[in-house]
Design a protein around this nucleic acid. Sequence first.
DNA 1: GGGGTATACTAATGGCCATTAGTCTAGCCC
DNA 2: GGGCTAGACTAATGGCCATTAGTATACCCC
Lengths: 216, 216
Amino acid sequence: MPEPVASVVPDPGSTAERILDAAEDLFAERGYSATSLGDVADRVGIRSPSLYNHFRNKEALYTAVMERLLDDFSGPIAELRSGPITHDRVLLWLETIVRKHHANPNLARLLQHAALSGGPGTSELVDRFFRPMFDSEHPIEDEPRPLLGDAGLQPWAVMAFNNLVMSYVTMAPMYRDLLGQDPFSQSALDKQLKLVTTLLQAVFDFRTPGERAGDS
Amino acid sequence: MPEPVASVVPDPGSTAERILDAAEDLFAERGYSATSLGDVADRVGIRSPSLYNHFRNKEALYTAVMERLLDDFSGPIAELRSGPITHDRVLLWLETIVRKHHANPNLARLLQHAALSGGPGTSELVDRFFRPMFDSEHPIEDEPRPLLGDAGLQPWAVMAFNNLVMSYVTMAPMYRDLLGQDPFSQSALDKQLKLVTTLLQAVFDFRTPGERAGDS
DNA sequence: GGGGTATACTAATGGCCATTAGTCTAGCCC
DNA sequence: GGGCTAGACTAATGGCCATTAGTATACCCC
C-alpha cells in the first residue's frame, strides 16, 4: 500500500491534484460535513473509493486542501511583518489580499465555514492564518497617536478590515443578484479595491483632521 | 391531521416554539443540509418524528426559522427608509443593527450559510433582507458630493458596512480565541460599536477634509 | 363519560454516506 | 516475458438521515 501524500503539493495535472481542486471548490461551497466524497469523485470523474488511493480519508483530504490554500495565502502577511509597519505598507498588504481573495475565493469561504461550524483542524487554521495578524509586537510606526483614538481598538480594526475583504467574497453569490453584475469581474475588483483602500485612507486621516498624512 | 403552522409565530413556550429555537441555533451553526432533524429533536427533548406534528418537513421548519428572524430584523431598515436619509439617521441605523446582530447572531450566520451554500428560499431571503437597502431611490440627503468621491461606489459602501457588522458575528468563534475574550460580552459590543461608528464617521468626513460635518 | 383532537411514541423504509476488502488492468524494471 | 506496483474498479458494511405509518395517551367539549 502506498503511503498517501500528506502535506506535499502533488504534481500538476495528476489525479491527486485534480481531487484537491474538486474538493477545494466543494468544501469551500458547502463546508466540511455537507460535502460528500461521492460528489468530489463525480467531479473528478472517478468512483469514490478511488479517492482512498490518494488520501487516507475525508479528513486528510480536507486538511490537504487547507494546507495548499494556506501556502498560497501566507505570503502577504509575512511580507508585511518582514519590515516596518507603515501606512503605505499596510495599504499595500490590504490591496494584495483583496486581489488574492478575488483570484481565489475559496480560502475565505473555507475559513467562514470553519468559523461557523468548526471542522477538523479549525484551531490550527486560526493559528496559521489569523494569529500572525495579531501577535505583532510593533504597532504602526508612523502613528503619533493610537489608531481611531483608542489603543484597544487596533486588533478590532485589523479584524474589521480583514472581515471586510473576506466577507465580500463569502457574500458574493448574494451580491451577484443584488448589484446585477459578476462580483468577480475586473470592474467589480476595481470598485472593491477603491472602496477598501479609500476606507483605510479615511481611517488613517480621521485621527488627524486638517492635517493630511500624504503617504502616497 | 392538524395543518402545521406556516409563518405565524407560535405561542411562547409551546413545543413549536421550542423547536424553532433549537432549529434556529442549529441551522445557524451548521447550515441547512448539515443540520439533522434528529439533532433538533434531541435538543428539544423529543423524538424526530414528533417534529412532523408541528412542521410539514425540514424545509418548512427552515423557512419558519427564517421567517421569524426576518420579522425580528426588518425593523431598522424600514425605520431608516421611512424618513430622510441623513448622516445621523444612517449612524442610528448602523448602531441599531450592530446591537440587534449582537443580541441574536443567528440571522447573520444563517445568511452567511445561505450565501455560501444556497438552501431553500435563499433568493427570497435576499429580496426581503438585502434588497430594501439597495433599491432606495433617494440618495443621502445632506451630501453635497457623492460618497467616497464616486457615485458608483455607494452600493458597495452599503454592502461593506453591512458585511462589517455581520461578519463580526459570523467570525466570532474565531475571534474568541484570537482576542482572548467573549466576543458577545458587553465590552466587546462597546468596542465594536465604537469601531463601526467611527469608521462611518471617517467615511462621512473623508470627502470634505478640513470641514467637519458635526453631525452629533 | 365519550368523541375528537393534539401530540407524543415506536417501527420501518429507502437513500446516501464514509469506509473497507478484494479484484483487475496497464505500465515498469529485470 | 514475469513479477511488481499504482491506481482504477465493484461489492459490501454499518450508520445516519428524512420521512411515513400506525399507535397510544391526555386533554377539551358535549
